[in-house]
Nucleic acid binder design. Structure first.
Length: 400
RNA sequence: GGGUAGUUAGCGAAGUGGCCAAACGCAUCUGACUGUAAAUCAGACGACUCCGUCUUCGGGGGUUCGAAUCCCUCACUGCCCA
């Protein structure tokens, strides 16, 4: 009763379970549709998410704080009411913007951002982030963290002399190490402040199904010791779930898998595990195989807008001339409103829409890609329940 | 029949003696995109034995050290006059 996560079955390290929120239960593993500014882009609305059975929606604290502001959203009855969304929702804390916004200044206290809209200086710290998220009203909220790049952003030109190169590489590595160690320390400090801010408004002894849940974030880049340190410090705190942050931010996929190998299994088994911002279909499969339960990523939506469709036979660049007169749908096995199991819109039509830059094309592509992602997660759940994950994975990866 | 404007790489269109294998746009192709400052960005786009060489700017012939650019001629296209 006091748990928000039930593990139903495992297959290898892969887990299938149920995440319980105050707005209903969700089968894990699942993928969250990203609606940063309270909207999936490309004209995709809640009806569309309903049609493709998208389980959870994610919005962003930083963006909604800028516009329309959490006060307005609260006044409008919270994000669910504002968006007419009755699905469980998660808000990111703005921590990722610590990584992605160029103009900002990070201190131990918090972060100054220059608004990407009008340049206005914005202060966000743990308390502020949690307060904003409370007002937005999501069912799962994230602790405020520092997400550092996994590699140095502007490394100096490496020396050409091989003798000097070795020392140079070591110095760069150390520099990165200390940068990420600082991020780990801040993330822990901010995690505690996030918990306090959350506890100040909600009684944490209440079952997680009766209040917003707060997730902690583990940082540490690709350094095993820093990851372990962060994991130890974060999991010591009374969070409702745990996320891995700072991955898929520039490092090769193999490096990310290695981190998952090293620490995913050490995350508490009785809480949901969330790999933030990941990823490609392959990444999702590899991460589920290592015990991750929750994901979100801009890939399906953004790549849809950029002309890439995901199918069970791999990626498709829909604007390619080869589809000019194709009567196929994107994926015959897809039951989304666009493919309709083969009876839907043809690749030729979608290509046409995309090449003439019609909104409808991006909308259809987005709906399909999100549907594919949810279908992929659903399939993985089934395969875990059938304890057939590894064989399925091996076969699936050949095509994807 | 007369006049006039034009003919440039897949298309459109700059260039009007050397810095032109030839701007730019479209089309085409290839990359990139991972808690969305992203309906975005980068690259290729005459041929090849590809850090160099070769063949191009309607056809042919000239002038010139050198021509897509000047001259002659032919062909075709648009417009105007008969």
């Amino acid at each position: 009763m006091n748990k928000n996560f039930d593990l139903k079955s495992t297959s290898g390290q892969a887990r299938a379970g149920v995440l319980k929120t105050r707005r209903g239960e969700v089968q894990t593993p699942f993928f969250m549709s990203v609606a940063t500014r309270a909207a999936i882009k490309a004209g995709v609305g809640m009806e569309d998410l309903e049609a493709i059975e998208a389980p959870v929606v994610l919005c962003n604290t930083y963006h909604l704080h800028l516009k329309p502001g959490e006060a307005l959203v609260e006044k409008m009855g919270g994000l669910h009411e504002f968006m007419k969304c009755d699905k469980p929702m998660l808000t990111d804390s703005g921590g990722f913007q610590v990584f992605s916004i160029k103009r900002k200044k990070i201190t131990d206290e918090g972060v100054w951002f220059n608004s990407h809209i009008d340049g206005k200086r914005i202060w966000i710290d743990a308390e502020r982030s949690i307060d904003i998220q409370h007002k937005l009203g999501a069912d799962m909220i994230m602790a405020f963290d520092e997400c550092p790049p996994s590699r140095l952003q502007n490394p100096m030109e490496p020396p050409t002399n091989p003798a000097e190169l070795k020392g140079w590489k070591r110095r760069q590595e150390r520099k990165l190490y200390f940068k990420i160690r600082t991020a780990v320390e801040r993330t822990t400090a901010w995690a505690k402040r996030s918990i306090d801010a959350h506890a100040a408004k909600y009684d944490l002894s209440l079952p997680p199904t009766q209040r917003p849940q707060l997730f902690g974030i583990v940082q540490g880049g690709c350094f095993k010791d820093l990851r372990e340190q962060s994991l130890k410090e974060i999991t010591a705190l009374p969070f409702d779930g745990f996320a891995l942050g700072g991955l898929a931010v520039g490092e090769p996929s193999e490096a990310m898998y290695k981190v998952l190998d090293e620490i995913a299994e050490k995350l508490p088994a009785d809480k949901p595990r969330y790999l933030m911002g990941v990823g490609s279909p392959k990444d999702l499969i590899e991460a589920v195989a290592r015990g991750i339960d929750m994901f979100d990523c801009v890939f399906p939506a953004r790549n849809a807008r950029h002309g890439t469709a995901y199918t069970w036979n791999g990626e498709l660049r829909i604007t390619n001339q080869e589809f000019e007169a194709s009567t196929d749908v994107l994926d015959v096995s897809c039951g989304c409103p666009v493919c309709q199991n083969g009876k839907g819109y043809t690749r030729a039509y979608l290509r046409h829409l995309m090449t003439v830059d019609e909104e409808l094309g991006k909308r259809f592509m987005t709906i399909h890609n999100l549907a594919f992602y949810h279908d992929l997660m659903r399939t993985m759940r089934e395969q875990i329940m059938a304890d057939n994950f590894e064989p399925w994975k091996a076969a699936a990866l050949v095509k994807l």
